[in-house]
Design a protein around this nucleic acid. Structure first.
Lengths: 195, 195
DNA sequence: GTCTATAGAAAGATAGAC
DNA sequence: GTCTATCTTTCTATAGAC
């Protein structure tokens, strides 16, 4: 590709990093272009030299979020497969993830926020989701009924975090996260017997 | 309570009905007060005779949504307990629910939308969530490890529907919903042996 | 209680200087 | 490419007549 200067690429990535952080925390409509650009230490006029629209930024942020997220870590690790997934489940369904103290996964943080947007955004979300399924598939290639179990596990993980972020009751959140971790793992252990 | 005229109550409920429908479909920020009032066949000036603010309407809609939802049906039914939950799981994780052809459950449709709002809204969401857990608890009072299994099941159901609404791939959606139904029920069947 | 009209604020996008 | 300034639209909330 005939690519722009290295400086521009770096600026673009700084904007995307700010966008990931802010959109995950507050959703599409509660973040302004000004918010993002200020966080990236620029003024809002400079935005349109990098992105066509706010929606394009949003779709880009969803894709970019995976680069530093919990999922990326799991993707890198090879071997010792079942343990990797156990670690992923534990890190994903951790209160630190819910509170965005670790890099947020857009699948959980933006699920219903994405549902109402146009194709471009939903396609970005779908791609990230399929990547998660692919990761789990590779790590769990010994598991019987693999496909169904992995899909159910993904709903358990994403749902657990999404609900936890909405609830206003600390104790229930801790109970919910714990239960999702426990029965998420059980979903994998019981693969010995085919249903 | 010294209550308003019957006519006013009915109007208020018509507004709430429109709010449930529209907020569930599009989220808080993509619905205007004008949209809601037009749907309720009024003009937007009349809104503030019924609600203090848009946020109050939103919180009210989350609470009101349960009155006609899938959850309400499950709550009414007595006896034949395990079957009721099986029916609830099937109806909740149905493509018709995802496409809002049956009354939408705000727990799934508004999960990440609620996370970013103030206390009043999150408390309404938390109340509805606890009601769901209570329903499941009553219907499944024979189940061992009941508490944890029910929490995990709730995440599976809500997560399955929330993700399905975001995805832009029909086949993946159908696979996901099917897997959530299957392993959601498995979560209940395997209660015979304590883990 | 409902209407029409409008105040007031916010934010996406663009223009033009440097 | 980045800046400041502004255009333009949209929307919440209020005012005041009926």
């Amino acid at each position: 590709m005939p690519w722009p200067t290295e400086q521009k690429q770096m600026t673009r990535e700084r904007i995307l990093g700010s966008a990931v952080k802010l959109f995950s925390a507050r959703g599409f409509d509660n973040v302004t272009i000004n918010n993002v650009m200020r966080d990236a230490q620029l003024t809002h006029g400079a935005f349109y030299a990098h992105f066509k629209s706010k929606h394009e930024l949003y779709a880009g942020a969803i894709t970019a979020a995976t680069k530093n997220s919990i999922l990326a870590k799991a993707q890198e690790e090879e071997g010792c497969e079942n343990l990797n997934v156990t670690n992923l489940i534990a890190a994903y369904l951790d209160i630190d993830h819910v509170q965005q103290k670790t890099p947020p996964c857009p699948l959980a943080f933006l699920a219903t926020d994405v549902a109402n947007r146009e194709e471009e955004v939903r396609l970005a979300y779908t791609k990230v989701y399929k990547d998660l399924i692919t990761i789990l598939n590779k790590q769990l290639n010994h598991l019987p009924s693999r496909k169904g179990r992995i899909l159910a596990l993904s709903a358990l993980m994403i749902g657990g975090v999404a609900i936890s972020r909405a609830l206003y009751d600390e104790q229930v959140v801790m109970d919910l996260l714990g239960a999702c971790r426990k029965y998420g793992e059980e979903l994998l252990d019981e693969g010995d017997v085919e249903a």
